[in-house]
């Protein structure tokens, strides 16, 4: 479709104007513009309406936004009623957000970072990280392109296309390797970071891990890992400064 390449490029920056007001709505409108070009010449009034709709409130996982974008552009070109297109966008928000978060933020990213940590601890160098970044970005581009094309091909039937695609299966399966790789990486990374440290460092790290775990588990929502880390650091600095 005309403008598909430019839309794909713009989808890479879909969160560029992320706001509490419209979330990724402006990015959706920005990405839709090249695809709505034909409508501008054929039906200027309809184009203005479609453009306004494309930038309305929308939120989902950024890598999967192309599904909603492609589907709504196709619906606009087929003359589907505006209210139905708005309902389609609203219906896609939650599932595309949940699927994307599961597959990427809670799945692929932790898997790759855990594998990187484990590989480094086992003697791999910076080359591992170059390969991981290149591989991840290739996946990111391919997924974004697949999402846009699937949306454009499916129109208002995009929900059916998503449910019969690889996406729900991946979301269901990704947690197992995510857990396995995280479990593998944590002790390896800790041992690597503590290697060649004086006696007692491992014991101190173990005790810190135990207390921090209890604080994170039972300390309530405000007790984040970052705050616990800062608390421990302050205690150690004070102890070093004032201990007899």
């Amino acid at each position: 479709m005309k403008g598909e390449g430019r839309a794909l490029l713009r989808l890479m920056a879909i969160q560029g104007a992320w706001s509490y007001e419209r979330m990724i709505g402006i990015g959706m409108g920005f990405s839709a513009a090249p695809l709505l070009g034909d409508l501008e010449q054929a039906e200027p009034a309809r184009h203005r309406e479609a453009t306004a709709r494309s930038a309305e409130f929308f939120n989902c996982h950024p890598y999967l936004a192309g599904l909603a974008l492609g589907a709504s552009v196709r619906a606009e070109q087929e003359g589907v009623a505006g209210a139905q297109i708005q309902r389609l966008r609203t219906a896609l928000c939650s599932p595309l957000g949940a699927l994307g978060d599961q597959v990427f933020w809670a799945g692929l990213v932790p898997i790759l970072m855990s594998l990187s940590l484990a590989a480094i601890a086992l003697g791999g160098g910076g080359g591992v990280l170059v390969a991981v970044v290149l591989g991840y970005n290739l996946v990111r581009v391919l997924v974004t392109r697949w999402a846009l094309r699937t949306g454009l091909a499916s129109g208002v039937q995009v929900g059916r296309a998503v449910s019969s695609s690889w996406l729900p299966r991946a979301a269901a399966k990704v947690a197992v390797p995510a857990g396995l790789t995280a479990g593998l990486a944590i002790p390896l990374t800790a041992a690597w970071l503590l290697a060649a440290r004086p006696d007692g460092a491992g014991l101190l790290a173990g005790a810190s891990a135990g207390v921090a775990w209890l604080l994170l588990r039972f300390g309530g929502g405000r007790m984040t890992s970052l705050r616990v880390g800062l608390m421990f650091a302050v205690v150690i600095l004070l102890w070093t400064r004032f201990a007899p």
Binding site: A182, A185, I186, P187, T189, A190, L193, L194, R197, A201, G202, L204, A205, G206, A207, S208, A209, G210, V211, A212, W213, L216, S225, L226, V228, G229, F232, A233, I236
Partner: peptide, 11 residues
């Protein structure tokens, strides 16, 4: 070592 411990608990 203390921060490694907290990092382990965090991960």
């Amino acid at each position: 070592p203390a921060l490694v411990g907290v990092g382990v608990a965090a991960a």
